[in-house]
């Protein structure tokens, strides 16, 4: 009989690192390589693609941050789409009325937070089915914005890029990363902050405990309801910011249902990023890149029907989700309302 009880062979730290991050590293290096190569061929188009990648990814990563704050504390939020849309609309309205962009962004964020509060109330206090709670928010947002929006409202400008000195002149990445409007910068910061909070602070430890084993947290004196409320409300605020990005930074005006499924793609981004902010960022950039390249290819003179090119982002999603991500571990208590005895 074969000896199957062999000890695992020794692995060096480098091998372990490569095993864990190898694919990610390969993809990142590949993307950088192709980008530089493309830049040699067509500088303008390449810069456009890189900048567009960042632009497209911003609302996705914000939406994913919203989703993962909720799910890490075990509240499933499929109402991101609605929170974003309502945030976008209220931000737009305040901009129309006051012309103060700062107030407009604040209003969008507050709107998102209120919608977060509504979701938390439904799923934590009323212990409603969280999928239904999220759907309520989506339908509510679609209905409210559709009803109150009047064609012909004119905005008073949008957020402008702020170049960060000489950094903005670096080829390729300069214009894309260091010459952005404020919400995009805020997104970069938020990803890092949420990552830090979730994995290095007391609040984060409690949040993750509540998402995995709420009773354990409860028996140690952690207030499960408070943790869930605060996380879902903060998530809502971030979704509101994503809405503000759409109306106040990217487009500058409002259209009906303008979120166009971004809230749901954000959920995919969150799962793809394994419920971590940095992972979600990487995932959002990939989605953004697929979208950007698709737009460029449609301009290019290629003999492929444009519908096929339009499929690219979705195709990429399927390949990546099925092939490279591996197992995602969902927080154990995700979606289960906590019953205090």
């Amino acid at each position: 009989m074969k000896n199957t009880n062999q000890l695992p062979t020794e692995v060096s730290p480098l091998q372990r690192f490569l095993k864990r991050w190898g694919w990610t590293l390969a993809m990142v290096l590949g993307v950088i390589g192709i980008t530089i190569w493309q830049y040699q061929l067509n500088a303008q188009a390449t810069e456009a693609v890189v900048a567009s990648t960042i632009r497209q990814s911003t609302p996705l990563v914000l939406g994913a941050l919203c989703g993962l704050l909720g799910e890490r504390s075990a509240v499933i939020n499929i109402g991101i789409e609605g929170q974003m849309l309502l945030g976008a609309f209220v931000g737009f309205l305040v901009n129309v009325w006051t012309g103060n962009l700062f107030l407009a962004v604040l209003a969008a964020v507050l709107t998102g937070a209120v919608m977060g509060l509504l979701l938390a109330y439904m799923s934590v206090t009323l212990k409603m089915d969280q999928i239904i709670g999220g759907t309520v928010i989506n339908i509510l947002a679609l209905g409210l914005t559709g009803y109150f929006y009047q064609v012909g409202m004119v905005t008073q400008g949008k957020l402008q890029p702020i170049p960060l000195g000489p950094l903005a002149n670096i080829p390729i990445i300069g214009p894309a990363i260091f010459n952005n409007p404020p919400i995009t910068y805020a997104t970069f910061v938020l990803v890092i902050v949420v990552h830090y909070v979730l994995f290095y602070t007391k609040w984060g430890l409690r949040t993750r405990a509540v998402g995995e084993h709420p009773r354990a947290a409860d028996t140690l004196g952690v207030d499960v309801f408070k943790i869930r409320y605060v996380n879902v409300i903060m998530g809502g605020a971030i979704a509101g910011l994503a809405g503000a990005f759409l109306t106040l930074e990217a487009v500058g005006s409002f259209e009906r249902a303008m979120t166009n499924g971004r809230g749901f793609v954000a959920l995919a981004v969150m799962i793809f990023g394994k419920f971590t902010p940095l992972g979600a960022w990487g995932a959002a950039l990939l989605f953004g890149f697929a979208n950007a390249i698709q737009t460029q290819l449609q301009f290019a003179d290629i003999q492929i029907p444009h519908q096929f090119i339009g499929m690219l982002p979705y195709l990429l999603t399927i390949i990546v989700l099925s092939g490279f991500v591996g197992r995602t571990r969902v927080p154990a208590a995700d979606g289960v309302p906590y019953e205090k005895e």
Partner: peptide, 25 residues
């Protein structure tokens, strides 16, 4: 048991009575 299975022993021990340095655990 009231233990979070995916946490380390240390994380389980300090949950609810965390020691911090500045804002970090």
């Amino acid at each position: 048991f009231m233990l979070v299975p995916v946490f380390s022993v240390t994380e389980n021990m300090i949950l609810g009575s965390e020691v911090t340095k500045g804002t970090s655990l």
